[in-house]
Every structure is written in structure tokens, then in C-alpha cells.
């Protein structure tokens, strides 16, 4: 199996490399772009934290939240306005940016600006979305649907590859456990890694209780540190978390985003465990326990 490495970042930003044996990459930011000022504020704060910790990072914020539970929930600033802000964040902070897109027609504009494009979990098997993502020629952050088995994500990977793109990061964001409930099966990470692509863990969506609050999703964010430590120990190449300086008043995912005041604490744990795992592998070799039987 060939292990692929992704380079995220074009032009005037500092490229971030995601791959096996490399430093853990943080992908994060507010769930939605709420305003130019807020997007810049968040980028500045996160940039300082990541710089202090020596963690390469990619700024994430979305311009359109198409999977909101209620018709009157904040939907986003829209493609044009949102991408303009993301472009300015890139220029100002020299950081690669990623946004998801929910309509194939938005892919070209998203790829023109963003260093990485993201496929939402609910749309992870939609051929039109996957082909559109591939056609941007940008690295693709492909979220595993909450309804998908990790081994079946290979079908989505194959659709992207068939469209000519071989730059994929596979994410676990939890799996439906009955209604309004997610669980994390951490075997999904090594299973998806067998595609040869790096894997990421989306901690803040994993603690989501989907649409558990009637017309919005709830969440149990007190478990974010536990899940992050578990995922880092299991083996990931990137950690995804949405964060906000004022979660209660966040315009999207207010029940799941990590309070910015805890970001450094959680990232410190993630980095330490990731490095400990890499050191163990360097000393004892890659996991190969009973693989001969499989």
C-alpha cells in the first residue's frame, strides 16, 4: 500500500504537509464565517496558539451552511462574500484555508480561493459533489458520513480518483448510534487509512447529538479532550475542531464548537500524544499485530 502525502497551500501561504510520520496538522476555525471582523479575530487567535505550540494549521470556516436543521437558522454569508473573506484571511495570515461546499456549482469558486475543499459528511457519497471536488484539483477533506461504514468510504475515494484527483484526507466525525446520537468507533481510522490516504479526526462534530434539540443539534463538548486523546493515540495525521470565542452565541454549531479558551489545552494534549506515538513507531516499528491473518 502506498502512503500518500498531501501538500495543502498554494501561492503566498505557508504550505502544510499532511502524511504518515509527519507532525500533526490542526484544521480549525469557526464553523461559519460570521463576519469579516470575526473571521480575522479567530484567525489571529488561532494563529498565535498554533505558532506557540509549533503546530502547522489550516483555517476552516464555511460560507454556506446548507445542512442546518431549521429554515431560519443562520445559513452563511454566501459564496461570493464568504470566499472574499477567506481569501483575505489567507493573504493576511499566510495560512491555507478550507471550506466545504454543498452544491457542485460552487466547487470552481471554492477551489479557486481555498487551498483545500471539504466534502460534507451528509454528501460524502454524492457522485456529483465528489466529481466537482475532484475537478478543483485541490486536496479534498472527505468526511465519513455518519451513516457510512469506514470500509465503504473506499467507494467515495474511488469516485474521486476516477475523476483524476489523488489528494484526499479522510475524516471520521462519528457514526449514528440509533437516533440523535453518535458514537466513535476508532477502528474506522486504521480501516480508512488502508486506502493509502491520510486520516483526520473531527472531534467537535463527533460529540454532536444530531438535531437532538428539536430544531438544532446538541452536543457533549466536555468529552472533546477524551476523544482527541484517543484519536491521537490511535493514529491520525490531522485533527479537525471548530472553535469559537463565544460558543453560546456562535451562529452555527453553538452546542458543539470548542470554546477558544480551551483550544491550547486540547492541542497540547493532541500534539504530545501524537509525538509519543511517532516515537514508539520509530523505536518499535509500525503496527503489524495479527495483520497476517487479515
Amino acid at each position: 500500500m502506498v502512503s500518500r502525502t498531501l501538500v495543502v497551500g498554494y501561492g503566498n501561504v505557508t504550505p502544510v504537509t499532511i502524511g504518515k510520520g509527519l507532525p500533526l496538522v490542526f484544521i480549525g476555525g469557526p464553523c461559519a464565517i460570521e463576519s469579516r471582523d470575526h473571521a480575522f479575530f479567530m484567525a489571529e487567535r488561532i494563529s498565535k496558539i498554533c505558532s506557540r505550540l509549533g503546530i502547522p494549521w489550516i483555517y476552516k470556516a464555511c460560507y454556506d451552511k446548507d445542512c442546518r436543521s431549521a429554515p431560519d437558522s443562520f445559513h452563511g454569508l454566501g459564496v461570493d462574500h464568504g470566499l472574499r473573506i477567506l481569501s483575505d484571511v489567507r493573504d493576511e495570515f499566510g495560512v491555507p484555508v478550507v471550506s466545504d461546499f454543498s452544491d457542485p456549482a460552487w466547487a470552481p469558486a471554492t477551489g479557486d480561493v481555498c487551498d483545500m475543499v471539504q466534502v460534507p459528511a451528509y454528501l460524502c457519497r454524492q457522485t456529483s459533489i465528489l466529481k466537482a471536488a475532484a475537478s478543483t484539483n485541490r486536496p479534498i477533506h472527505l468526511k465519513k458520513g455518519q451513516f457510512m461504514s469506514p470500509w465503504n468510504m473506499k467507494n467515495s475515494v474511488r469516485k474521486i480518483e476516477a475523476a483524476g484527483n489523488h489528494q484526499i484526507l479522510l475524516a471520521d466525525r462519528g457514526t449514528f448510534f440509533g437516533y440523535n446520537m453518535l458514537v466513535n468507533d476508532f477502528t474506522s481510522l486504521p480501516i480508512m487509512a488502508r486506502t493509502g490516504y491520510p486520516v483526520s479526526f473531527d472531534a467537535t462534530h463527533s460529540i454532536q447529538l444530531p438535531t437532538s434539540m428539536g430544531n438544532i443539534s446538541g452536543g457533549q463538548r466536555e468529552f472533546i479532550p477524551n476523544l482527541v486523546r484517543a484519536a491521537a493515540a490511535c493514529g491520525i495525521q490531522a485533527l479537525f475542531m471548530e472553535t469559537h470565542n463565544d460558543p453560546i452565541n456562535a451562529m452555527s454549531d453553538s452546542n458543539t464548537v470548542l470554546d477558544l479558551k480551551y483550544l491550547e489545552y486540547v492541542l497540547t494534549h493532541a500534539k504530545a500524544i501524537h509525538e509519543a506515538r511517532l516515537n514508539l513507531i520509530a523505536e518499535l516499528g509500525e503496527d503489524s499485530v495479527h495483520l497476517e491473518e487479515k
Partner: peptide, 12 residues
């Protein structure tokens, strides 16, 4: 030997 879900085996 593999003892994993058949659905997983099918897609290998």
C-alpha cells in the same frame, strides 16, 4: 481467519 464483517470483506 479474518473474522470481520462480510460487508467489509466484500469491499476489499
Amino acid at each position: 481467519n479474518a473474522q470481520k464483517p462480510i460487508a467489509s470483506f466484500f469491499v476489499d
